[in-house]
Write a protein that binds this DNA or RNA. Structure first.
Lengths: 204, 204
DNA sequence: GTCTATACACCGATAGAC
DNA sequence: GTCTATCGGTGTATAGAC
């Protein structure tokens, strides 16, 4: 008896096609906008017809859902990479966290729309796709706590502040830096408010 | 000779029907969501068929556009009414401005979506509908300047801060007050940052 | 002039042949 | 697993009834 094969070639192929579909979907979302994504368009871009997509995703929203999960997982990977490089100084640390989020959000409008706004009618992320988003928030909470930002209300204020700057930037000055320029000043405002010591000239 | 009639009854009737259409549209937007609005639905609610709407609006987006203009005009009326009641104290004045905006935004999710977010694909407000929005911002700028908040960057920071709190409230705690509770604290943070004197116990 | 009936192109989704 | 065919829905255009 040969037993079971060690690899499931069919599952691998299925997963590869799923990724191909998602890549095409991201391409269209970036090109034409997140809401302008259509199944026919996605399918044709990879040499398929629209109904074939239903062998890989149960609905159009399931595609959005997988994209949502991908985006937050990517961001989780990013902050994992950034974590060892975080400055020791609390104030610089908070600034680094804010900049990481801000830059990631501003770099891809469609992605930010999907991750942080409720712009697709009827789309609600599944628990599985939401998990990395929760993990990111948990991670951010820990980092902020390490830098002296503690308590739900302070974290809520921080997220609202950064989110507000991102949204203003995206909505009113897409591609510019009118609100991006205010980020450091905004963090200083926040840091002073919650009592994070100023960074001294030669580190803290 | 009788001359011209003093009233254009036909134009009045036309305008009345336009308002009736918009009222139905607001109703549906509040009930089912802004994006779920359909022409057939709007038309049936006032005893018409969908194509008849084209006698009053050139497209569905033209309806959204008129709603956009209505919402900002309403808000302009509101701040006109609020203006005489604004406190003298700079800090309380800024708080009043923030509360007025925050409460108006949170009171109607669909309206806030239309006014302040880019949630309808392809919808761009016309210059005529945008005019009251500009007027509101101009008015807010003058009020803030009167309370000592001057310069584009400070106003930008203020709008981003309040907008961020509104969006966080709507997105993560609709109907609750998790971020609404932070509003006063946020304004104090901002006021301290831009050097607005604290309100004393017995007025300023 | 107002409104309707009809039609068109497109959408997401489903059924069934191969 | 992928296709064609099709369904009910959408926004939109237009011809014509009244």
């Amino acid at each position: 008896m040969l037993g079971q094969p060690t690899r499931d070639r069919q599952a691998e192929r299925q997963e590869a096609t799923r990724l191909e579909i998602l890549a095409a979907a991201w391409e269209i979302a970036r090109d034409k906008g997140l809401a302008e994504l259509t199944l026919r368009d996605v399918a044709f871009r990879i040499g398929m017809r629209a109904p074939s997509l239903y062998s890989y995703f149960g609905s159009k929203n399931a595609i959005y859902d997988a994209m949502f999960g991908q985006a937050w997982t990517d961001y989780l990977t990013l902050i994992n990479a950034v974590e060892p490089t975080l400055p020791r100084s609390p104030r610089d640390g908070v600034k680094a966290i804010a900049h990481t989020f801000f830059d990631y959000a501003v770099a891809d409008h469609a992605r930010h729309q999907l991750m942080n706004q409720r712009t697709i009618p009827g789309f609600v992320p599944s628990p599985e796709s939401y998990a990395p988003a929760i993990e990111v928030l948990e991670r951010a909470r820990r980092h902020l706590a390490r830098f002296g930002v503690q308590g739900n209300e302070r974290v809520d204020l921080f997220t609202a502040l950064i989110g507000g700057l991102v949204d203003a930037q995206q909505a009113n000055d897409l591609g510019g830096d009118r609100w991006a320029r205010l980020l450091d000043d905004a963090i200083d405002m926040f840091a002073n408010h919650v009592g994070i010591p100023k960074t001294t000239g030669r580190g803290s």
